Amino acid sequence: DRIFMTRTEALEFLLKAHQTAVDKIGHPSHKQTPADHAAIEALDRLLLDVRARRVDQFQINASAAQIIVTD
């Protein structure tokens, strides 16, 4: 599946995904793992790359739809 978004929409989408990941590892019942921190770092890099126009398409994980940034 493909989803087309403007750059602004894609950045909002990534910010929400980032916040969800941060909230998940901050929850008291969740045991933090290196994979959790790696996922947040990957989202940080992706946010910067989309914002800087170095990336025009991405996929958060293998089961997610491919996001295509349109400007």
Results as ranks from 00 to 15, higher is better:
Ala35Gly: 11
Leu47Glu: 02
Arg53Val: 04
Lys24Glu: 10
Asp49Ser: 03
Glu41Gly: 06
Asp71Gln: 06
Ala17Glu: 13
Asp23Ile: 10
Thr8Ala: 14
Glu12Cys: 07
Leu15Met: 14
Leu15His: 13
Asp49Leu: 11
Thr20Gly: 08
Val55Ala: 04
Glu9Leu: 04
Leu46Lys: 00
Lys31Ala: 08
Arg2Lys: 15
Arg45Leu: 08
Ile68Thr: 06
His37Thr: 14
Leu43Lys: 00
Glu12Val: 05
Arg54Met: 07
Ile67Trp: 01
Asp44His: 15
Ala52Met: 14
Lys31Pro: 10
Val69Asp: 03
Ala52Tyr: 10
Leu48Met: 12
Glu12Gly: 05
Ala35Glu: 14
Phe13Glu: 04
Phe13Leu: 13
Gln59Arg: 11
Asn61Tyr: 09
Thr33Lys: 07
Thr70Trp: 07
Lys31Arg: 11
Gln66Ile: 15
Leu43Asp: 00
Ala10Val: 04
Asp36Cys: 04
Lys16Glu: 11
Asp1Ser: 01
Lys31Met: 12
Ser29Arg: 08
Thr70Phe: 09
Val50Thr: 02
Arg7His: 10
Gly26Ile: 11
Lys16Gln: 11
Ala64Phe: 11
Leu48Gln: 15
Asp23Phe: 02
His27Gly: 10
Lys31Phe: 10
Leu14Cys: 01
Val55Tyr: 02
Phe13Ile: 09
Lys31Ser: 13
Val69Asn: 01
Val55Pro: 01
Gln59Val: 07
Asp1Leu: 00
Ala39Cys: 06
Pro34Glu: 12
His37Lys: 11
Ser63Thr: 12
Asp1Trp: 02
Phe4Lys: 05
Leu48Asn: 15
His37Pro: 04
Leu15Gly: 09
Thr33Trp: 06
Val22Leu: 14
Ala52Cys: 09
Ile68Cys: 05
Thr70His: 10
Ala65Phe: 07
Asp44Ala: 15
Ala17Tyr: 09
Ala17Pro: 00
Val55Asp: 01
Ala17Cys: 06
Ala42Met: 15
Leu47Trp: 07
Val50Arg: 00
Gln57Val: 13
Ala42His: 14
Leu11Glu: 07
Leu46Trp: 02
Ala21Gln: 08
Thr8His: 14
Thr6Lys: 04
Ala62Thr: 11
Gly26Lys: 15
Ala65Asn: 07
Arg45Asp: 04
Leu11His: 02
Asp44Pro: 01
Gln66Thr: 11
Ala21Lys: 04
Ile60Arg: 01
His18Lys: 15
Ile60Thr: 05
Ala39Gln: 13
Ala35Met: 10
Lys16Asp: 09
His37Gly: 07
Arg51Cys: 06
Thr8Ile: 13
Met5Lys: 02
Ile68Tyr: 08
Ala52Asn: 12
Arg2Thr: 15
Val69Tyr: 02
Asp71Gly: 07
Gln32Pro: 15
Ala64Gly: 15
Leu11Arg: 00
Phe58Ala: 01
Ile3Gly: 01
Asp44Lys: 15
Ser63Met: 12
Leu11Gly: 01
Arg53Gln: 10
Ile67Ser: 01
Phe58Gly: 00
Leu47Met: 12
Ile25Asp: 04
Ile60Phe: 04
Asp36Thr: 05
Lys16Arg: 11
Leu14Gly: 00
Met5Thr: 00
Asp71Trp: 02
Ala52Ile: 06
Thr20Gln: 15
Val22Arg: 10
Phe13Arg: 03
Thr6Asp: 04
Glu41His: 12
His30Val: 08
Leu43Arg: 00
Asp56Phe: 12
Glu41Phe: 03
Pro34Tyr: 06
Ala42Val: 12
Phe58Asp: 00
Gln32Arg: 12
Asp56Tyr: 11
Gln59Thr: 08
Asp36Glu: 10
Gln32Gly: 13
Ala10Gly: 02
Thr33Val: 08
Pro28Asn: 08
Leu46Val: 02
Asp23Asn: 12
Ile3Asn: 03
Leu48Ser: 15
Asp71Ala: 07
Ala64Asn: 09
Ile67Leu: 02
Ile60Tyr: 03
Asp36Val: 05
Ser63Trp: 07
Arg45His: 08
Phe4Arg: 06
Arg51Ala: 15
Met5Ser: 00
Thr6Ser: 10
Ser63Ala: 11
Val55Thr: 07
Ala21Pro: 01
Val55Gln: 04
Ala21Asp: 01
Ala62Tyr: 06
Thr20His: 13
Gln19His: 06
Lys16Ser: 09
Lys31His: 12
Phe4Ser: 05
Glu9His: 04
Ala35Ser: 11
Leu11Ala: 03
Asp1Glu: 13
Leu47Arg: 07
Leu48Val: 14
Asp71Met: 04
Phe58Leu: 02
Arg2Gln: 13
Gly26Gln: 15
Thr20Tyr: 09
Glu41Gln: 12
Ile25Leu: 11
Gln19Cys: 05
Thr33Ile: 05
Leu11Trp: 04
Asp49Cys: 05
Ala39Leu: 15
His27Tyr: 09
Phe13Trp: 11
Val69Gly: 01
Ser29His: 11
Ile68Asp: 02
Phe58Lys: 00
Asn61Cys: 06
Ile68Gln: 05
Pro28Lys: 09
Thr33Glu: 09
Ala21Ser: 04
Ile3Cys: 05
Ala52Arg: 08
Ile3Ser: 03
Leu15Ile: 12
Ala42Ser: 09
Asp56Gly: 08
Thr8Glu: 12
Pro28Ala: 11
Asp56Gln: 10
Ile40Gly: 02
Thr20Ile: 14
Leu47Asp: 01
Ile67Glu: 00
Gly26Phe: 14
His37Trp: 14
Val69Ala: 02
Ile67Thr: 02
Ile40Trp: 03
Ala64Met: 13
Ile3His: 05
His30Trp: 11
Asp44Val: 15
Leu11Gln: 02
Gln57Arg: 14
Arg45Pro: 00
His30Ile: 08
Val50Ala: 01
Gln32Phe: 12
Lys31Ile: 13
Phe58Val: 02
Thr20Ser: 14
Glu9Met: 06
Asn61Gln: 09
Met5Gly: 01
Val50Gly: 00
Ala52Pro: 00
Ala65His: 08
Asp1Pro: 09
His30Cys: 05
Arg54Ala: 06
Gln66Ser: 09
Ala35Tyr: 07
Pro34Gly: 07
Lys24Leu: 11
His27Thr: 13
Val50Ile: 05
Thr20Phe: 09
Gln59Ser: 07
His30Met: 07
Ala38Gly: 06
His37Asp: 09
Asp36Leu: 15
Asp36Ser: 06
Asp36Trp: 06
Ala62Met: 09
Asn61Glu: 12
Lys24Pro: 03
Pro34Thr: 10
Arg45Phe: 04
Phe58Gln: 00
Leu14Thr: 00
Ile40Asn: 02
Leu43Pro: 00
Met5Cys: 03
Ala62Pro: 13
Ala38Trp: 09
Pro28Gly: 10
Gln57Gly: 07
Thr6Met: 02
Val22Asn: 05
Glu41Met: 06
Ile40Glu: 02
Val22Met: 13
His30Pro: 05
His18Asn: 03
Val55Met: 04
Asp36Ala: 09
Ile68Phe: 10
Pro34Phe: 08
Thr70Ser: 11
Met5Ile: 03
Ile68Lys: 04
Ala65Thr: 12
Asp71Leu: 05
Ala52Glu: 15
His18Trp: 15
Leu14Ile: 10
Ala65Gln: 10
Ile60His: 04
Ser29Phe: 06
Arg45Glu: 05
Lys16Ala: 13
Arg2Asp: 06
Ala42Gln: 12
Leu43Gln: 01
Gln66Ala: 10
Arg54Asn: 06
Phe13Thr: 04
Met5Val: 03
Asp56Trp: 09
Ile25His: 06
Gln57Cys: 11
Ile67His: 02
Ala64Tyr: 11
Leu43Tyr: 03
Leu15Cys: 08
Arg53Ala: 10
Ile40Ala: 05
Asp23Thr: 10
Ser29Asn: 14
Val22Ala: 07
Ala42Tyr: 15
Ala62Lys: 11
Asp44Glu: 15
Phe4His: 10
Leu14Lys: 00
Gln59Cys: 04
Ala64Leu: 08
Asp36Lys: 04
Leu47Pro: 00
Ile3Phe: 05
Ile67Ala: 01
Val69Arg: 01
Ala17Leu: 14
Arg2Gly: 05
Ala38Leu: 13
Lys31Leu: 12
Leu15Tyr: 12
Ile40Leu: 12
Ser29Leu: 12
His37Cys: 07
Ala17Thr: 06
Phe13Lys: 03
Lys24Gln: 10
His27Gln: 13
Thr8Tyr: 10
Gln57Glu: 11
Glu9Gln: 12
Phe58His: 00
Asn61Lys: 07
Arg45Tyr: 03
Gln32Ile: 14
Val69Cys: 02
Ile67Cys: 02
Lys24Cys: 05
Thr8Val: 13
Thr20Glu: 15
Lys24Thr: 10
Leu43Phe: 03
His30Ser: 11
Phe4Ile: 09
Asp49Tyr: 03
Phe13Asp: 01
Thr33Gly: 09
Ile60Asp: 04
Ala64His: 08
Lys16Val: 09
Ile25Ser: 07
Ile25Thr: 06
Asp71Lys: 05
Ile67Tyr: 06
Lys24Ala: 12
His30Lys: 07
Leu46Pro: 00
Gln19Trp: 05
Arg7Asp: 01
Asp44Ile: 14
Thr8Leu: 12
Leu11Asn: 02
Val69Phe: 03
Ala10Phe: 02
Arg51Trp: 05
Glu12Asn: 10
Leu43Gly: 00
Gln59Phe: 09
Ala64Lys: 08
Pro28Arg: 07
Ser63Gln: 13
Lys16Cys: 07
Arg54Cys: 04
Glu41Arg: 13
Ile3Glu: 03
Glu9Asp: 06
Met5Ala: 01
His30Leu: 08
Asp71Ser: 06
Ala52Lys: 09
Asp1Lys: 01
Asp44Gln: 15
Ser29Ala: 11
Asp44Trp: 15
Val50Lys: 00
His18Ser: 04
Arg45Ser: 05
Leu46Gln: 01
Ala38His: 09
Leu43Ala: 01
Arg54Tyr: 05
Arg45Asn: 08
Ala65Cys: 07
Pro28Met: 07
His37Ala: 12
Gln32Asn: 13
Ser29Gly: 13
Val50Gln: 00
Thr8Asn: 12
Ala21Asn: 03
Val69Leu: 10
Thr33His: 07
Asp23Lys: 12
His37Leu: 15
Arg53His: 14
Thr6Ala: 03
Lys24Trp: 07
Phe4Cys: 10
Ala38Met: 10
Phe58Ile: 03
Ala52Trp: 08
Gln32Ser: 14
Ala42Gly: 05
Gln57Asp: 05
Glu12Leu: 08
Gln19Leu: 06
Asp56Pro: 03
Gln66Trp: 15
Asp1Ala: 01
Ile68Glu: 03
Thr6Asn: 06
Ile3Lys: 05
Asp44Cys: 07
Pro28Trp: 01
Glu41Ser: 10
